[in-house]
Design a binder for these strands. Sequence first.
DNA 1: TCTGCGTTGAGGTC
DNA 2: GACCTCAACGCAGA
Length: 522
Amino acid sequence: MASEAAASSISSFPRRLAMESNALLWFRKGLRIHDNPALDYARRESNNLFPVFVIDPRYLHPDSSAFSLGSTRAGINRIRFLLECLSDLDSSLRRLGSRLLVLRGDSDPASAICRIVKEWKIRKLCFEYDTEPYGQELDRKVKIMIVRLGFLKDFASKHGIEVFCPVSHTLFNPADVIGKNGGKPPLTYQSFIALAGKPEGPLEVTYSELPPVGNVGESELLTVPTIEELGYKEMIEEEFPPFRGGESEALRRLKEVLKDKEWIANFEKPKGDPSAFLKPATTVLSPYLKFGCLSSRYFYQRLHNVYQIVGKHTSPPVSLLGQLLWREFFYTVAFGTPNFDQMIGNKICKQVPWREDEALLVAWREGRTGYPWIDAIMIQFIHWEKGRDVFERLLLDSDWAINNGNWLWLSSSAFFNQYYRIYSPISFGKKYDPDGKYIRHFIPVLKDIPNEYVYEPWTAPLSVQRKANCIIGKDYPRPVVSHDTASKECKKKMGEVYAKDRSMKSCKKESSKSATLRKRKK
DNA sequence: TCTGCGTTGAGGTC
DNA sequence: GACCTCAACGCAGA
């Protein structure tokens, strides 16, 4: 396990570096002090520690061509959340006698890192291993540049530059689980659980101080920028979600969650109320896990402790701990599946001739499908990659492996095969919230529609619509599709896709069989 | 090859 | 709330 590798590297840390040692800690995810193996290794026997975050324009700079306020890759809420994470990290580092150095990476974060490695005479470069393609590409660039840098000859020819990148974003190293499964990622949750075993515990160290930041020379350093400084001027405070970013908030929130042991012991995800919004039916720790403000190993350990205290508790996949393992499952499959975020070239994904319908997509994205319950959850027969893109941008806890995994699941493209089980935009919501409180909160124009019509307002008589000051087709849209017709059509077409998939697979099997026979005859 | 099973369907009965 | 039926999928393990 790579986290084991991290631990052993720490104990065998070479003493030769004690003489002159500058360490660079490059933060990407893992925006925390607790259970941070890269930080712990970087600070050991280092005279100077340079904690760095590079501003990546794709994630932070405003992009006016995007469909919502934000950068090319992230919506404004997640950008703000990230800045809060950085501010909190900076405060924590300052309490330990350090600070966060924020760098502009106008072209590419990897180039910025390599430039300062050279400028600041860095001997140890530490950063958390990232399993996502974007992170992997950055890692690759940095490693290649470090090797190529001519300065190695005169500066560090004797010792080289040590690069340390532990796996600490997840409970397990995806590569290890895949290795245990003969080189292929396990495709069911249960087989994943059987392979994964027990995770390692978090690092137990706490710090009273960290090595000081060394001389940063001519580098243009910023403090953590405000959202206005990044160029987002149109923000209105009321538009912000109620969740604040950062490790301190993550740990505070975790502490709150852990207080209610009964709730943890009885947690069953499918029974949670998806319409609960003032007091959510989940922990809302996912955005903190996404950015690594909360260590998944620490969370796992604390949950495990609660289970030991209370005795009887729910189990995976539905339990709270089971939710953490779903994250691991998707990280593992995503890591081991080329083109995981696409249909084409993705071996585990059903090849479906999705309809291209920009108008339907936009109606869904903008919440004007005419189906009040979600006005968001379902799009009829439109490519899952389009829905994924919308979520990737807008979700606070948007997480590459999990978002793609869930869209593959819900579109019956992979993991889940019972495509004939279709959610109803009317009855599913009613189960949890028969009076439509959720709808009335988020779609105020429907607030006076009587309960019996609130999930399907187009069925309300005109007199009722008038009385409620909501005329369907004028104040609130008519349904963009007939759910009855569209779901039947979807089911029929998915059936055809599955049949085609089966016949292709059996053809392949047959041809490989006859090939083996031919070989044997020879 | 067969069988059991699969975090979150809908609609029905009791 | 628990259970059944509807129609019927693929994976994993025996």
